[in-house]
Nucleic acid binder design. Structure first.
Lengths: 238, 238
DNA sequence: GAGTGGTCTAGACCACAAG
DNA sequence: TTGTGGTCTAGACCACTCA
């Protein structure tokens, strides 16, 4: 970690999580933090803006940076968290079942969605996620072969994100998601323990790298009674 | 509009929406924009960071600010958009039916969620949202009476957000949301055209003002076949 | 009036991409 | 090597809150 503003950010997050500051209280002023961290005010402000973006504080002009009650909300399925990170956080009884790791030609809808040229090869990965003995989530991933040359069942059993970021060194940057509810398919029936449910919650994600190339499309199908999505949204100014 | 960086932001958004820049192309460099807008580079960067946050561009070191295909995704229920704004955007056949505008004592779960003192009065508003002749959404709002002294059926028929922001001058700033799927209640049966559906998608929102006071709790219950949520998420750095 | 955060400046040096 | 964005600085002035 070499970025000064990230150091400050992490310091403050830790301090808040350790309860050194309590919800409703204010952080030290920007001027004080500037002195404490021996830096410039703009750098402190960069760190504070990150804290605000992530729901730790709310900056109030004339008053200070107010600590928010961040802990009240966990973020189990929010943002770009991968399933592996999730299971670590929740520490429950998780298991991944890999049904398919194949290499196909890009066709039809998927091809259009991934903006592929003709002849582009795509990895197709199908996995069930088992939680507490029940298969709750069906994940169907499509990844561009030119960006991810090798993919094995064992990688899919661990974390594909881990592999992509740490082994391949690709930088996953942002995603667009759509959440809808749809009737169950035959595939859902086969690969999930639906418990009589006739609909699933479907999260379709388009995942981009830091250089703005779209490289993955994921369809994540959740049994509705186990689905939760948490979101923290700041209002965009006109 | 007096903020220079917002001026630049709005200029660039307009230019992108008008197709003066196309997806995949890059914006003029920060140095060029600094000259064009006769400002400092940090101010240009503030505007560009806003564009990136809102999914218009992706900044790539060494290359430039790449235009993203923003238009492919509409944002019908994302963020803090109110129902009124929605109907304007979609230009469909919308109608709001107000069932209840009452003043209650804060009690039980709601009281805890809004962090109220004893004796705090709360507005309780119940509305159905009719789209294309069908009652699709049931909105139940709870607002703090001390912050919103007057609320009428006619305000509830228009936009409560409008009233709060433009009439009362309160500054709605951010919200925490939870999305889950739940079985229908008797109230849902009565106030929605469920069309046989046995479950609804429930969005619970906690809405905060700019000074970090929590002032509203909303439960928005959607018929699943008409529900859609769209999200643009940037990865948070460690 | 003192203290807070919000905006803006004019420079500097660094890391990365592409020719 | 040139041009790009990323970080950082040391100041300035403004808008707001609160005593």
């Amino acid at each position: 970690m070499k970025n000064k503003f990230l150091l400050i950010y992490n310091d403050l997050v830790r301090a808040i999580q350790q309860g050194k500051f309590h919800p409703g209280e204010t952080l030290p002023s920007e001027h004080e933090l500037t002195d404490q961290f021996d830096t410039s005010r703009e750098t402190v402000r960069k760190a504070l803006n990150l804290l605000a973006q992530n729901g730790y504080i709310q900056k109030v002009r004339g008053k200070g940076s107010v600590i928010l009650d961040h802990g009240k909300f966990e973020f189990p399925v929010s943002g770009l968290t991968s399933f592996k990170e999730l299971s670590n956080q929740l520490g429950q009884d998780f298991h991944t079942i890999v049904h398919e790791v194949t290499l196909d030609d890009a066709t039809g809808e998927i091809k259009k969605q991934l903006q592929c040229r003709s002849g582009q090869k795509l990895w197709r990965v199908v996995r069930s996620r088992q939680i507490g003995g029940e298969r709750i989530i069906l994940d169907k991933d499509f990844l561009r072969k030119d960006l991810v040359p090798n993919l094995t069942k064992s990688i899919a059993e661990q974390s594909i994100y881990d592999y992509i970021e740490n082994e391949l060194g690709l930088d996953i940057s942002f995603a667009k998601k759509e959440i809808v509810v749809e009737p169950v398919t035959d595939e859902d029936e086969e690969l999930l323990d639906l418990n009589g449910h006739r609909q699933v919650v479907v999260i379709r994600s388009y995942v981009y790298l830091a250089d703005a190339t779209l490289f993955q499309f994921t369809e994540s199908r959740h049994r509705p009674d186990k689905f939760q999505f948490v979101d923290f949204a700041r209002r965009t100014k006109a």
